[in-house]
């Protein structure tokens, strides 16, 4: 049946569909013993999922990875986000910044021009100096930040056209492993999702890594310490040192609505 046929009408399409599915059924390994879902559950997943580093080290790891990608990392506590943003923008000398709807007002420092992205076209986005977003989560193992189309992160085009991306990331959003992240993202898997690991790059010319081809060439991350580590010496019959993590976000919800 491989020949020259005009494919325009639906019947032809369903014919191709039926035939391909039929070929697959004839070709695949003999009748699988169980249904797909049960067989899928049996796939051996002996790789690492759970974190094996303490929270503080996971943050350090992420920072190392981000710096490895030439991103700058700024630190602040939740109350100081606006100040940190101002410092970053000042240092980069950026004025006109696009933000997504739902970006917390208290993040925005005075003296800069923030433009809310109301379906700006690509040309308009191209004219702006940078983009400011929150994030959905980050993966320390790989130095990856994940954005989804939700308030505060916005449309994919807005983080693509401007040459500079400033991303506000909360310590409580930082996971260690890729599997942890994917399992977290599962709930919102069908939202437009972008993983970025450093600025765009290419090594297509003599394997020389060049930072920035089409996406933003410059990336800064503001890492907001919304977790306090409480360490105390325990009594003699307990392990010598214990630590617990408390999300400040749960204590001061207004400070941390990252979307």
């Amino acid at each position: 049946m491989r020949g020259k046929r005009k494919i325009a009408a639906m019947p032809e399409r369903t014919e191709a569909r039926a035939q391909i599915l039929e070929r697959i059924r004839a070709a695949k390994p003999q009748a699988p013993p169980s249904d797909a879902a049960a067989a899928w559950e049996k796939i051996r997943r002996e790789y690492k999922v759970a974190p094996d580093l303490p929270p503080a080290e996971i943050l350090h790891l992420l920072e190392d990875r981000l710096r490895d990608y030439d991103a700058q990392v700024f630190h602040c506590v939740p109350a100081e986000i606006a100040g940190a943003i101002a410092r970053a923008l000042q240092q980069r000398d950026k004025q006109n910044i696009v933000i997504a709807a739902g970006t917390p007002n208290e993040w925005l420092p005075p003296d800069f021009h923030f433009v809310e992205d109301s379906n700006l076209d690509a040309h308009a986005l191209d004219q702006l100096d940078g983009v400011l977003t929150g994030a959905t989560l980050a993966i320390a193992d790989t130095g990856t930040i994940v954005l989804q189309n939700v308030p505060g992160q916005g449309r994919r085009a807005s983080t693509l056209m401007p040459d500079y991306h400033l991303c506000v990331l909360f310590a409580s959003q930082v996971l260690q492993s890729v599997p942890q992240a994917m399992r977290m993202l599962e709930q919102t898997a069908t939202l437009p999702t972008t993983f970025f690991s450093g600025p765009s790059a290419t090594a297509d010319i003599e394997m020389t890594r060049i930072k920035g081809v089409h996406g933003p060439r410059f990336l800064d991350v503001i890492l907001v310490q919304d977790i306090v580590q409480v360490r105390w010496m325990a009594s003699d019959d307990s392990p010598p040192m214990k630590s617990i993590s408390v999300s400040i976000g749960s204590l001061f919800p207004n400070e941390c609505c990252s979307g």
């Binding site: 994919r156 069908t190 437009p192 972008t194 600025p199 765009s200």
Partner: peptide, 12 residues
């Protein structure tokens, strides 16, 4: 690379 610079996932 530990992760390539961009992954895009979209649905319809």
């Amino acid at each position: 690379e530990r992760m390539n610079p961009y992954n895009s996932i979209w649905t319809g």
